[in-house]
Design a protein around this nucleic acid. Structure first.
Length: 822
DNA sequence: GACCTGCTGCGGTTTG
């Protein structure tokens, strides 16, 4: 059978199901069947699964036909294809699609799932007779590499597909995949590697990371789907601009405008940026619109899986009219689309916003509509920025992790746990990955020494001699070491938290210790949309009961910061430039904000794209310098520290530093020599690395970062399932290692990695450098406003928020706002 | 009573 004939079969099959394959699917089939590796670029809901499931099955049909095989007895073909998904729920869904395709084409294959939920009996069965089609996660794949005789298990493998590759590649889970693939490519030379990815800014890099340097030798193709998605962005506006606060993040003062949107729609998802806000919004919506009780639900990552599943099912069955949620609902799972999407506050990134918008109008070609609810005035410019970014197709890059030695160490021990490895065989495989292509011979030797002896600092301790060398084979012989290692596979290090359960034992979700520590038995808090009374805390379990009493607290969780993406920064600056142009603007938001912008202009200045604004003023609090790079919090954090450091070189002076996504403020009780500083190039990118190191407490930041590195590399053991080691304990033992390395083995690669990660991810050094270069080419405008400006206000409020109790803050904000009328 | 910044994901006690 030729490829054309085969694709014909598939097309007929599609026709009988009354679906039409898209052009991109047919392209993918043909490329796959002609022996290419590649990447399919298609959005969720486009039937992207079939673009690769079909040719994998057809290839098998072709082979059967070529060998003259007739219908054989079931199975026994060995493992033929592995499908990797980042999420278990998605794995279930893929498994259904794959099963349908297998049945539809009448192919004699088993389709099986292998995740952490798979029973050990089932796993044993799979080891003995592998399914032909296996759907699994990166972690489970690594666990399979930790099995004895894995090479035999994988020997018939023809294809590995990495679904949602854009999700994986920007994390250490992606690196795990790169490593697994490097091994599988050797074990099965005829292996084809494919990825499926949503659109990202750096598609080429996505392909390189997936295929490694072997893509230079092999045949590869990028298949782009022809499906266009129309997205309409509508901002929810108050009646007048004065109704919007200048600062804040919650946005509930627009709740009366949000309720009609929910009521007029059959189904609505309301996305908030934090779990805490989801709780608050849910509560406020119920207060304002009690008729939503029973048809509205909430969904976030700290609510138990069981409750979340219920919500997802109810949404699917159209029993719910609205769900308040966090990103827990924007990941890959393709439930039935909803009619309306509402985004509360800035989504911080174009891709995230588009992903959420895409939850509505799911059919190809349908319009997706998303409402943007600003939480403070200036945030409205982000709506305009998002709209244009979508229009011109500007989406974020996903930066692949490189040189993550913690992941590599874990992988080497994994191989040593199963069949052992020869270093001269594995080294070239490692070098062939995107992530580790720059590893040097000396670094490789260090890694081998580390897994066998614990390295220079730990040589004296037997515990860290995990791997032994026997006839040139690196092997783990100690059963305890092997078991603990299998228990620790993975790169997600979660914070330990307390379980919240009813006294009866029913599990509701998790909460952080510091929050519950503020409460006493009898106190009432609001969680998972319920009023819960704290009964007692017993062995890491918070026992609660339902109550009618009013809650006095809403939990919050300490998650990652999400700075404004650089693509958003670019568009935001463009929109602010647009504001400076005369006449009616294209974006309603900008016209709406015009009075506020005029005020900013009167009190200070509105910078054009060629200008950089600095405000210098004195208040009761002291002397303020505020700068507006619009580069996101992370960059401003570093830039603020950098500037404080360089100013202190001119004159002895100390500052308190505050920042948000738009700018940062230095506050001092003495006059700040800002004019002199600008003269002396205080914003120069020269000596950036050196000055940053001198200005921030990089040791402390790296030490904190080291917690995850220590856990992933296996230096610290996270505990047995159900008996997690306490967070504080994990933190302190990893700090111990950090300090030992810092003092006695400064060339330790894990230690160096911690410092690198601080620069790359915490401070976004590369982005800061670019920003400084840009600023150096801009005209610097220093104004001395006599009253706080709309630009400065939110930064100042955020600073006070950290220091003052909320009551005092409110007074303060009122007093400041009084000064605004001029 | 108003005020709240800080997301998501997986894995797991057993072996010749």
């Amino acid at each position: 059978m030729t490829n054309a004939e085969l694709t014909d079969i598939a097309k007929r099959w599609f026709a009988s199901k009354s679906w039409t394959p898209f052009t991109f699917q047919q392209e993918a089939w043909e490329a796959y069947l002609s022996g290419y590796h590649g990447l399919v670029n298609a959005p969720t809901g486009s039937g992207k699964t079939y673009s690769l499931v079909m040719p994998i099955l057809l290839e098998f049909l072709n082979e059967q036909a070529a060998s003259g095989a007739t219908k054989k007895s079931r199975a026994g073909h060995g493992l033929r294809a592995i499908w990797i998904t980042p999420i278990k729920a998605l794995a279930r869904e893929i498994s259904n699609s794959a099963q349908k395709a297998v049945d539809g084409l009448g192919i004699d294959w088993h389709v099986k799932l292998r995740t952490g939920d798979t029973s050990s009996a089932e796993r044993e069965k799979m080891k003995k007779s592998p399914p032909e089609f296996l759907i699994t996660t990166p972690e489970s794949l690594q666990l399979m590499l930790a099995q004895k005789g894995y090479a035999k298990f994988f020997e018939n493998l023809r294809a590995v597909v990495c679904d949602e590759w854009h999700e994986l590649m920007g994390s250490k889970r992606g690196v795990q995949m790169e490593l697994a693939l490097s091994r599988l490519k050797t074990v099965c030379p005829q292996l084809k590697v494919w990825g499926i990815s949503a659109t990202i800014g750096n598609m080429d890099e996505a392909l390189q990371a997936l295929l490694g340097s072997s893509h230079v030798r092999g045949k590869y193709k990028v298949i782009k789907s022809d499906i266009k998605k129309a997205i309409e962005v509508e901002s929810v506006l108050p009646d007048t601009v004065e109704k919007l606060p200048w600062a804040g993040h919650l946005g509930t003062n627009l709740i009366d405008k949000v309720i009609p949107i929910i009521k007029n729609s059959k189904s609505t998802l309301i996305f908030t940026n934090t779990r805490s806000f989801a709780e608050i919004w849910y509560q406020r919506l119920l207060d304002k619109a009690p008729e939503l009780a029973g048809i509205m639900a909430m969904h976030h990552g700290s609510i138990s899986r069981e409750l979340r599943d219920w919500v997802e099912d109810a949404l699917h069955n159209e029993q719910l009219k609205a769900v308040v949620c966090t990103s827990s609902l924007d990941l890959g799972v393709d439930f039935r689309p909803v009619e309306t999407i509402i985004q509360i506050g800035s989504p911080k990134g174009v891709a995230r916003f588009m992903q959420r918008a895409g939850r509505s109008g799911h059919q190809p070609g349908a319009l997706s509509k998303i409402y943007f609810v600003p939480t403070h005035s200036l945030e409205l410019t982000e709506a305009a920025a998002l709209r244009e970014a979508i229009a011109i197709g500007l989406v974020e890059d996903r930066i692949p992790y490189i040189r993550s030695f913690d992941v590599l160490i874990q992988y080497l021990v994994t191989l040593a746990v199963s069949d052992g490895f020869r270093q001269d065989e594995i080294y070239p495989e490692i070098k062939g990955t995107f992530s580790y292509s720059s590893v040097t011979d000396a670094e490789w030797k260090w890694l081998l020494r580390f897994v066998t002896t614990g390295g220079a600092a730990l040589t004296a301790y037997d515990e860290y001699r995990k791997v032994e060398i026997e006839d040139g084979v690196y092997k783990v012989k100690n059963r305890m070491v092997a078991m603990r290692h299998r228990l620790s596979i993975g790169t997600i290090v979660s914070d330990s938290s307390l379980q919240v359960k009813y006294v009866s034992g029913k599990y509701i979700g998790t909460i952080e210790e510091w929050f519950i520590a503020r409460l006493s038995p009898g106190d009432v808090f609001w969680f998972a949309g319920r009023n819960l009374e704290l009964v007692r805390i017993k062995e890491m379990v918070v026992q609660v009961r339902n109550t009618k009493k009013k809650a006095k607290a809403v939990p919050s969780w300490q998650g990652g910061r999400m700075p404004l993406s650089s693509q958003m920064s670019v568009m935001l600056r463009k929109k602010l430039h647009d504001v400076t142009r005369k006449g009616e603007k294209e974006d309603v938001e900008l016209n709406f904000l015009q009075p506020l912008m005029d005020l900013q202009k009167r009190r200070s200045h509105l910078p054009t794209k060629n200008e950089f604004l600095i405000e210098y003023f004195k208040s009761r609090e002291g002397y303020h310098v505020v700068m507006y790079p619009f580069e996101g919090r992370a960059v401003h954090e570093g830039m603020g520290a950098l500037l404080a450091h360089r100013l202190a070189q001119i004159t002895p002076i100390t500052f308190s530093i505050a920042m948000n996504d738009y700018g940062f403020e230095l506050l001092s009780d003495q006059e700040i020599p800002i004019y002199e500083a600008i003269e002396t190039d205080v914003l120069s990118p020269d000596n950036l690395w050196r000055d940053i190191q001198a200005s921030i407490n990089s040791v402390e930041m790296a030490r904190r970062r080291f917690r995850d590195i220590a856990a992933i590399s296996g230096l610290v053991f996270k505990g047995y399932p159900g008996h997690q080691i306490k967070d504080r304990h994990l933190q302190s033992s990893s700090q111990l290692f950090f300090d030992v390395f810092n003092d006695y083995e400064s060339e330790n690669l894990l230690l160096l990695q911690a410092y690198e990660e601080v620069m790359d991810f915490q401070l976004e050094e590369a982005r800061m450098r670019k920003a400084l270069e840009r600023i150096n080419n801009q005209k610097i405008i220093i104004t001395e406003p006599t009253k706080p400006t709309p630009f400065a206000f939110p930064i100042m409020v955020d600073r006070m928020r950290e220091k003052l109790s909320s009551e005092k803050l409110e007074d303060r904000v009122k007093r400041m706002q009084l000064q605004f009328d001029d």
